[in-house]
Design a protein around this nucleic acid. Structure first.
Lengths: 244, 244
DNA sequence: CGACATGTTGAACCTCATCAACCGACGTGG
DNA sequence: CCACGTCGGTTGATGAGGTTCAACATGTCG
């Protein structure tokens, strides 16, 4: 059987998939990959829409192809915290035993490559390499969550904002996603709104705005437009973020 | 070969282990269990000592037998955040690919049942059930970490303290660890110091103290001594914690 | 063009961190 | 035995950082 028999239109075929080597599929043997390919189903979400509601078992799992997904928790009175951001190749949804205790929303326009949860779980049992990949991914996410606990519990507003910008910058560099250099400096994209930044950093839009202008006046960053910034000296940004 | 040949004095034999059914060993088949038993090595740490230092690969992994382990992250200037608490049967250390990015310290006197990391990892490859258990455990810890992000990012000081007490109460109930009832109410143990509570909740000892007395004057809790409390009405405590 | 979303800036208020004094328990040594 | 220091915890006074409320600017879309 041909491996790509069931690929849907609109979704890159697995062998052309831009994120395949980073996603779960990257560790699947050819047989498992064929199986995954049969199950794969693309989904698209405009910015602002909900992907998975809180409290229900997740209907599907999958990988982010493009865009940014935010995981949010909300208190009874409406206070809201973003507890995770998922980028291209990150895994969405929880396999096994799980109510999904938070909402997943599209922070930008989002494309996913999804698999029905029951079938995916069945496949996991016969493919330890997949499960191993998920374990490592979960441990990495756990580390990231704990870094964020340090930020939320200890850091000042300026350090929080600087930490976020540093996080974006490092991540972009790692993924080769910096835009064309301006004046010799690489340019990074702020993929989410100020209010999402505030919800992620445990603060308010006003504080975000003030601290960004402060970092500007300190010449630690420069904004080319609302959603792109330049970092002349990553060391100074790291210092502003509270790292030694 | 007899399964308990290598059990060290001072450590319960696996088949008598109090936490076995909850720990990794609980899901091992008899062959794997025999292997684990050979590798098992008990360790004890007095309160306040460091179990694993930050930044180095963990020399061993294992389960908490008794006591409480705190995972801490520290900023360059000394600000400190507890990013996780581990209780009996919780898993300590990171298998695979990992620098351990935080310190593990004994918050109380602690007893561990440990396995050398390389051997444990080897065993994992041949025992998918073990790895599956670790995945589920990691996902649960991730959920807990995210709950804590909501707490650190959104909640007021009183809600933080109430949330912590509720967390302890629920956990104790689930593990049947409530002490003898006083005046018909179950009594819960506060296993850690105020300063550890502060580091866990992203606040200060003074605030912890004030909020505890406030909860007392509101009759939401009662203290029998410094480290034991009673909750007349769990619903009111939950409300004080910000849950509807 | 007006309506709306998104972001910035200003002023007032408030929660909580900080600094300090104090208390009781405990252990040590004279 | 008591004096002493230390440690963990409580309480009080003060001030700063950040939230809140409000006005304003900008950009986008019908």
């Amino acid at each position: 059987m041909h491996v790509h028999a069931n690929t849907r239109p609109g979704l890159e075929k697995c062998d052309r998939c831009l994120i395949g080597h980073r996603a779960v599929c990257g560790v699947a043997d050819s047989e498992t990959l064929a199986e995954l390919n049969k199950l794969a189903q693309p989904r698209r979400y405009p910015a602002g829409t909900t992907i998975i509601h809180a409290g229900e078992p997740t209907p599907f799992v999958g990988n982010v192809l493009t865009g940014v997904v935010k995981l949010t928790k909300t208190l009874a009175d409406g206070r809201r915290q973003i507890v995770g951001l998922l980028f291209a190749s990150d895994f969405v949804g929880r396999a096994f035993d799980g109510d999904w205790p938070f909402a997943a929303e599209a922070a930008t326009d989002v494309a996913l490559c999804t698999f029905p949860r029951p079938e995916f779980e069945k496949l996991l049992l016969s493919a330890p390499a997949l499960e191993h990949h998920l374990l490592v991914a979960a441990l990495d996410e756990l580390d990231a969550a704990r870094d964020w606990m340090l930020l939320l519990g200890c850091k000042t507003a300026e350090e929080k904002v600087a930490s976020f910008l540093l996080f974006i910058a490092k991540r972009s560099a790692r993924h080769g996603a910096c835009l064309e250099p301006q004046h010799g400096q690489p340019q990074f994209e702020l993929p989410i709104s100020r209010s999402d930044m505030a919800a992620y950093l445990g603060t308010t839009v006003e504080t975000i705005s003030r601290q960004i202008t402060r970092l500007k006046t300190e010449n630690i960053i420069r904004l080319t437009d609302m959603h792109h910034f330049i970092v002349p000296d990553l060391g100074r940004l790291a210092a502003a973020a509270g790292l030694d």
